[in-house]
């Protein structure tokens, strides 16, 4: 389990990275935190001829609060989100999710952008990006372009990024300050990739759900939304806070049931497609209940 040979380039700027990528004729890989890429290289499942190491690109290791948008540089490490990076619901949501990203040593090295570009369908940041309709900013030889989350994730380990493009940041739209957020996942062991995860943002106006967003991870080849379930929740009253899980309030359970039916699921050795439907049902409901209880 030793990697195949590669050419190594350590770059200092994003522009330099893009230029090396452009010269490498599609055979280069970007090395960010390396917590997914290096295992794949050790197994020789990934064997890039060129590795472009962006760990010393200071401009990418930056969080920028633009009021409506939080810009997350690609090299911001997972661990940076363990304590809320902002006082609002976004900080809470990112913090809830960050605690599920691997284990501490993985969070210390692994990066937000690396996770998005790797596009594991069970990766927390991919689900969050899909949940918030984030935009990914890619730098290429022709300049920068923005890619909405709905178009970014193509399939397992495959994104809209071209081989000569570098993901430089994700732009996360902030939910309103009064929004409620929930994040639940189920994994076999602590720190494992989730078999399924559900993230929810609930915008509330006048005691009613003005908008609900539900994103699911680990269920198919990419992070997905549950639009039907989201629609069912619009205009529904919030449950009384003391009884968010009481049986008299069925809106969350109904939406969760709907979500488990509307999303395509796939199976693997840890659980069948059918089992993942079970998990979507329970985790979606629990994420909504968690949000409502805030």
């Amino acid at each position: 389990m030793k990697p195949a040979r590669f050419d190594y380039h350590q770059v200092r700027t994003a522009a330099e990275a893009v230029s090396v990528l452009a010269q490498s004729g599609g055979e280069a890989k970007v090395l960010a935190g390396g917590q997914s890429l290096v295992p794949a290289m050790n197994f020789r499942l990934a064997r890039p001829e060129v590795l472009v190491d962006i760990n010393r690109v200071a401009e990418l290791d930056r969080l920028t609060d633009e009021g409506e948008i939080l810009r997350v540089g690609s090299m911001v490490r997972h661990a940076a989100f363990e304590r809320p990076v902002d006082d609002g619901p976004l900080g809470r949501l990112l913090s809830m999710a960050a605690r599920h990203v691997g284990h501490l040593p993985i969070r210390i090295r692994g990066t937000f952008g690396g996770s998005l570009a790797h596009a594991d369908p069970a990766a927390e940041w991919c689900v969050i990006a899909r949940l918030l309709d984030a935009e990914m900013v890619a730098a290429g030889p022709g300049g920068d372009r923005r890619i909405p989350a709905s178009e970014f994730f193509h399939t397992v380990f495959t994104t809209a990024l071209e081989p000569d493009e570098l993901l430089i940041e994700a732009r996360l739209p902030k939910p309103s300050p009064s929004a409620k957020v929930g994040f639940k996942q189920f994994s076999r062991r602590a720190g494992d990739f989730a078999l399924t995860m559900a993230a929810a943002v609930v915008e509330v106006r006048g005691g009613e759900i003005a908008e609900a967003r539900i994103a699911l991870g680990g269920v198919s080849d990419r992070p997905v939304r549950a639009p039907g379930a989201e629609e069912m929740l619009r205009g529904r009253p919030l449950p009384p806070s003391s009884s968010s899980s009481s049986s008299s309030y069925t809106a969350f359970a109904d939406a969760a049931e709907h979500a488990s039916g509307e999303v395509e699921t796939i199976g693997d050795i840890h659980g069948s497609a059918r089992y993942r439907r079970d998990l979507i049902r329970v985790l979606t409901r629990r994420a909504l209940e968690q949000a409502a209880a805030q």
């Binding site: 076999r188 062991r189 602590a190 720190g191 494992d192 990739f193 050795i269």
Partner: peptide
């Protein structure tokens, strides 16, 4: 937790510790 799995084709599917699952302290 732990199980070695072969598929129909006789391939072993559990060749990493993400698939074969010795428990951690949490479990």
């Amino acid at each position: 937790y732990e199980e070695i799995v072969y598929d129909e084709g006789g391939n072993i599917l559990t060749t990493s510790l993400l698939d074969f699952l010795p428990p951690t302290m949490t479990e």
